[in-house]
């Protein structure tokens, strides 16, 4: 592939030049093949999104007559006006935003402190706490829906932000381990010497360790935020009032609201997809890095 290194390594130049030319020729065909396969798959992948956006911009009457044409002579934002004007979608946006923000922020604060305690301080029952936290990784949150629902029902907290935020801080407790691993990667001497100088552990955590933990903080923030924003089953069970619904739960009701008004339905779908798509476009690199580092480490 990179010709310079090849020629440097191999003493017999002439022989390799011929060989390389042959390889290059085959490589080029193979590269063309790769690009065409990729383009086909890319097309398959973007079509649903483009088609949804396209449908949402057509008048309902036209969709009824000619459902599968891409072009319309009367592209219109009417469906968006209907969805934004009539429905509760603004409320759902706000609910989802507040819940995801609270969950992500609190998760960072609570889990980083626990991760620091486990990684850098010594306390009784430390191993037990570590093991108990690890057990939590194995418990799928989905099997908790029945008991957790009864718990919140008993204290009358259904249809509040609390029912969404509180379990999301610790479920699953992966953030503790992300911070734990990260803090362990920071030299222990830093904490030791500060402690010798008389700094309290909380001070060491806040002033020395947290500022060095930016990548872990942003990874945990992004994941908790995105996960909570898209969370469906738990909000579906606990946020039954249209005023308290999150965006995904609200969207699950719109197909019954709009029946066969496909433009309105697709406009709702697009509006539901848009916020995180925009965020993803803006922070593509960081999000992808977050996935690959936390996913692989």
């Amino acid at each position: 592939m990179t010709a310079t290194t090849v020629s440097q390594r191999v003493p017999a130049r002439q022989a390799t030049t011929r060989g390389r030319r042959q390889v290059d020729w085959r490589t080029r065909y193979f590269n063309w093949f790769c690009v065409s396969v990729l383009l086909v798959f890319a097309a398959i992948w973007v079509i649903p999104l483009i088609w949804a956006a396209d449908t949402s911009l057509k008048p309902d009457g036209e969709i009824a007559v000619n459902p599968t044409t891409w072009w319309s002579s009367h592209f219109t934002f009417a469906a968006y006006r209907t969805v934004l004007g009539v429905g509760n979608i603004q409320t759902w946006y706000l609910n989802s935003f507040v819940i995801s923000l609270l969950a992500a922020t609190l998760s960072i604060i609570v889990c980083s402190m626990a991760g620091f305690a486990l990684a850098r301080t010594r306390f009784r029952w430390q191993r037990a706490l570590f093991a108990l936290t690890a057990v939590g990784l194995l418990i799928p949150s989905q099997v908790l829906i029945v008991p957790l629902f009864k718990e919140f029902n008993a204290v009358h907290l259904l249809n509040t932000y609390w029912v969404q935020v509180l379990p999301a801080i610790v479920t699953p407790p992966i953030a503790v381990f992300i911070f734990y691993t990260f803090f362990n990667g920071i030299p222990n001497e830093l904490a030791e010497s500060a402690h010798m100088d008389g700094a309290g552990w909380f001070h060491i955590y806040r002033k020395i360790y947290m500022p060095l933990t930016r990548p872990a903080i942003s990874a945990v923030f992004i994941f908790t935020f995105v996960w909570k924003w898209n969370d469906f089953l738990w909000p579906l069970l606990t946020m039954t009032n249209p005023r308290t619904m999150t965006l995904p739960v609200g969207l699950s009701q719109v197909s019954s609201d709009y029946g066969i008004q496909y433009a309105e339905i697709m406009a709702s779908a697009v509006l539901g997809a848009l916020p995180l798509l925009v965020v993803f476009l803006l922070f593509q690199r960081r999000i992808v890095e977050g996935v690959s580092t936390t996913g692989l480490k």
Partner: peptide
């Protein structure tokens, strides 16, 4: 110090994950 910093997590964790399990 250790327990103090782990406490918020432990409380929430026990009430909303271990407890329900």
């Amino acid at each position: 110090a250790g327990w103090g910093m782990a406490a918020p997590f432990v409380v929430i964790y026990v009430i909303f994950l271990i407890g329900p399990t």
